[in-house]
Design a protein around this nucleic acid. Sequence first.
RNA 1: GGAGAGUUGGCUGAGUGGUCGAAAGCGGCGGUCUUGAAAACCGUUGUUCCGCAAGGAACCGGGGGUUCGAAUCCCUCACUCUCCGCCA
Length: 423
Amino acid sequence: MLDLKFIRDNVDLVKEGVARKYVDVDIDGILALDQKRRAIIAELEKLRSEKNRVSVGIARMKKQKEDASEAIASMKKVGQAIASHEKNLREVEADLQKLLLSVPNLPHADAPTGKDDNSNIELRSWGERPEFDFTPAPHWELGEKLGMFDLGRAARIAGSGFILYTGIGARLSRALINFMLDFHVSKHGYQEVSPPFLANRQTMTGTGQLPKMEEDMYQLSDETFFLIPTAEVPVTNIHAGEILKAEDLPRHYVAYTPCFRREAGAHGKDTRGLIRVHQFDKVEMVRIVEPEGSYDELEIITNHAEAILQALGLPYRVCELATGDLSFAAARCFDLEVWAAGVDKYLEVSSCSIYEDFQARRMNLRYRPAEGEKPIYPHTLNGSGLALPRTIIAIMENFQTAAGKIVVPEVLRPYLKGLEIIE
RNA sequence: GGAGAGUUGGCUGAGUGGUCGAAAGCGGCGGUCUUGAAAACCGUUGUUCCGCAAGGAACCGGGGGUUCGAAUCCCUCACUCUCCGCCA
């Protein structure tokens, strides 16, 4: 959420930023409602002030057994006027809030302007793409042959777009989760947390999934819970509504969770194998930091995600998202795309974003920079480190042998009782 | 799932429908005293909104209502605790 005062004082800047995100929101409508709201408040507070003043008098008269009926009668009218103004204010504020919640975060000045991912910019790449003297197989062929997963039975259990990992596939998945968590905890200093996998409406609004992404999430029929689309939601909201002390910052959290996404409107796009599924595992990093120097934090979190790919020996590239490709709440975002030899393309395995104070304001998360100072909003960031299925795809496809076996990355072997080859 | 009890400021904990933003204690901060510290004493100590300002307004779990007036009464939701049942 943007600061209403900021919108008021920077109308052109806000309109320009929103336009760069290719989002259509009614900024003028917000300003009009804001003006209306303030007019109502001014009037309402005048009435309340009168009420308070006269009420004291009534109390005194009653105490001295004097007749207060005249004052009470006149206050009755004031009371009614107050009630009607309050109703009015509630309505205006509800409308205003609704509009405000639909305003996206403004993109950072350095984010490349562009409508969609065609305008994304490759910043750097790491590692060598593997060379084969045979045609590398896609992971769905390798996976079925090696008994790592069974998509047909998964579809029978839940539907298409779900994964049933089997045998070594399930173990590899568990090994990756443990490896990533351990890595971020011991090498990058994160605190591991394990949050609920369901979240309520308020929490979903806090990080910005609601109101815009309602159709993309799974919702329970009692309408109180959503299945989380990412650990970003429960973890960033850990301190929602709190006023943290300066020494409580920074907070560095890492969490493993499954992620649930309806992928509405994604039919036919990358649907083979494990590329795009409705439920996947992910290890996620979240950083809650002071605004000062927060963009350095974006580099740091991106590097932390990259470190996993480097440790696994997977070639990747880092892309900066164009303004139109940025998520609703993000100001700037770097994607990591891993090379997958079998499907012969780069696959997004991590998204590292900074939200500035946009999420903090939505969830009313604040901290006090120093004793006696006013609380202000910290900045929030998050980055995948990493999403599992596509990482598994890259491991399988890049490390496959002519015989259709898969060489296990060394860093994972301790997690698989020393296993070197999946065959 | 059933029955009951709660939710007040950083914490503990009072609060009769009428100057209650709210007693008291603890903690925090400032000061006096002290070589320094402790103790004692004095003072201070929330968040937000409107307003150029002066100033005003709101907030006692959330939301509604009754009333001239609500922390206090009513409704509703959420959460916490105790007991019973069920269960990984």
